[in-house]
């Protein structure tokens, strides 16, 4: 469904990604794990068009999306839940969802989609008119995911959904992700929280200093001695 071929990217003269190749098949949940500063968020930003790659190719459903601007990539069916949620704090929950449905094709299905999102996250229905900035961390994550789902994406990118949340809320958030998976979405999730993420994905890639170090099924990675030593403290 999505494949990255030897993608490199950076900020100015600083290179953050080196020849990263990666595959996501339809219906899969893929994790990208790695330490802080490995380039995980950069990878997400390149896929969603927030950052232009310097070389390499990005193909989605047989179509090249290489170096397209972000709004064209959403159009193609990739939605990105950004790191730290990035809600429009001074807009209501409902308005945040409407922004998510900005694309003409999404506007047509707004009523039906928003109903579906509210059914998925009943809490949001209660807080529909509340300003997004006044919600709790877990609720905000629901809005962020809901907002991304409004464009009816085929692939959902999630950048550190657990970042900055209290342990109890992190548990909730991973339940949300599980819920999304059950709805049949293809998910690409970036996480630092290795144990949690390996429990919900099919396969995962380990990113270190901008390069893919390892890849394999979730079970393989869990059993990998190097990973256990470096990231799980076993």
């Amino acid at each position: 469904m999505l494949s990255l071929r030897r993608v490199s990217a950076g900020y100015g003269s600083f290179r953050a990604l080196f020849d990263v190749s990666l595959e996501v098949a339809a219906g899969e949940a893929i994790g990208v794990v790695g330490p802080n500063g490995a380039g995980k968020s950069t990878l997400m930003r390149v896929i969603s068009g927030m950052l232009r790659s310097s070389s390499g190719e990005l193909v989605f459903e047989g179509r090249s999306l290489t170096r397209l601007p972000a709004h064209r990539i959403v159009e193609a069916g990739i939605a990105h839940v950004p790191e730290h949620r990035r809600l429009f704090a001074k807009l209501s929950v409902e308005e945040n969802l409407r922004i998510g449905a900005f694309l003409p094709q999404a506007r047509r299905h707004y009523a039906e989609r928003s109903e579906w999102v509210y059914a998925l996250f009943p809490r949001l229905l209660e807080r529909r008119r509340q300003l997004a900035g006044t919600l709790s961390g877990g609720e905000q994550q629901m809005v962020a995911i809901g907002r991304a789902l409004m464009s009816k994406p085929k692939l959902l990118l999630m950048d550190e959904p657990s970042a900055g949340l209290a342990p109890l809320v992190v548990e909730q958030v991973f339940n949300l992700v599980r819920l999304i998976r059950e709805q049949g979405f293809t998910v690409l999730i970036v996480e630092q929280n290795l144990q949690q993420v390996l429990a919900i994905v099919d396969r995962a890639y380990l990113l270190e200093v901008g390069r893919i170090r390892l890849s394999g099924s979730a079970a393989e990675l869990k059993d990998n001695a190097m990973i256990q030593q470096a990231y799980m403290g076993l």
Partner: peptide, 23 residues
């Protein structure tokens, strides 16, 4: 309107407007 809400949103966070499909 969608356009109007987007105009209010853009003042709060320019960078992610593209992710919403907004040019």
């Amino acid at each position: 309107t969608y356009l109007g809400i987007a105009m209010r949103a853009i003042a709060q966070d320019r960078e992610i407007m593209g992710l919403m499909g907004v040019d």
